[in-house]
Amino acid sequence: MVRILIADDYPLTLMGTKAYVELLGYRVVGTCANGLVALNLIQQLRPDMAILDINMPGIDGVDILQKLHQQQAYTRVILLTMHREAAIYKRALNYKLSGYLLKEHADTELADCIRAVSGGLHYKSKYLDASHVADASAISDESLSPIERRIVALVAGQKTSKQIGESLFLAEKTVEGHRSRIISKLRLPKEKNALLKWALSNIKR
């Protein structure tokens, strides 16, 4: 039986994923909400597979993947995340990523992903086309801070302020504040969807 470890700092997501994976007939050998704990458990338990969130306390999911790759670990890693940025996916591929899923579509893809990864295949969410995903590194305006660049990339993906906040772990009001400063820095007209229009026209996709 395939042995799986799951790590996510959102309790509902963590327990929901665990329950679903067990319903599929797999054995969950451990769960946790911290990246460092996840890395230690993977090293101790050597599960066949680890389903990891990217943003977690301690170290993030991509860093765990990198360390496991450096150690030539046995465990295959699936990243289950809200991040659509092409740069994150491409970075993870450098460390032999086995699967990349978006949380919003996990209910329809997780079973297929686990099955594929169990068979030694790579699985990328059909909702994540790296050639059409907004890439924060493609934003050339140097006046924007790193967080502002990520926000613009998500705006180009037609995400709402609420969705951006959930993805970057920011309050919706904080995102709105960033958007206002971005519009000011880019000297955009204060009209509806001005930032979205700029992002769609200026970000390579």
Rank of each mutant, 00 (worst) to 15 (best):
P146D: 14
N202V: 02
V152M: 09
V29E: 13
Q158S: 13
D112C: 01
S201G: 03
L170G: 04
A171Q: 14
A38M: 09
V28F: 01
D141V: 10
A136L: 03
W198Y: 15
V28Y: 07
L80Q: 12
S145Y: 09
A87T: 10
R84D: 03
E109L: 01
R181D: 12
G157E: 12
E191L: 08
E176W: 01
N94H: 09
Y10W: 07
L41Y: 13
R205I: 11
M1F: 03
S118I: 03
C113I: 01
E176Q: 14
L24K: 12
I139Y: 12
K185V: 00
T75P: 06
Y100R: 04
C32W: 01
V133Q: 13
L45I: 13
R187F: 06
L110C: 04
I42W: 07
E172T: 13
Q163I: 00
V29P: 12
R187D: 11
I203R: 07
L168E: 00
A111S: 15
S98Y: 01
E22A: 05
E176R: 14
R3D: 14
S180A: 10
R187N: 13
L41E: 15
L170I: 07
G61H: 08
V152N: 09
L41M: 15
M1I: 06
V152D: 07
S167I: 06
L5P: 09
Q72W: 02
Q70L: 13
H178P: 04
R46V: 13
L188S: 01
K197F: 04
L200V: 08
L168H: 00
R27T: 14
A73M: 04
L110P: 07
T108L: 07
A171V: 05
Q66K: 15
L12N: 09
A136C: 05
M49S: 08
L128C: 11
S118V: 05
I139R: 06
A87H: 11
K173G: 04
K190T: 12
K197N: 10
E22C: 03
Y89M: 05
D107R: 12
L24T: 09
L195H: 05
P47D: 11
L170Q: 09
R27W: 07
S143H: 12
G35K: 07
A38E: 10
L79E: 09
K18N: 14
L188C: 01
S145R: 14
G25Q: 09
K96G: 03
L170P: 04
P146Y: 05
L97M: 07
Y89C: 01
I203C: 12
G35C: 10
K162D: 05
R3E: 15
G35S: 09
A7R: 02
I88M: 11
L102W: 02
H122S: 10
K96E: 14
N193P: 02
L68Q: 10
E166Y: 02
A153T: 03
V133Y: 00
A153M: 02
V175M: 06
I88Y: 08
L79A: 06
R179H: 03
I4H: 12
D141A: 11
A7V: 00
T17Q: 10
M15E: 14
H178I: 00
L196Y: 10
I78R: 13
K67M: 12
F169C: 11
A199D: 03
L14P: 11
N94M: 08
R179Y: 02
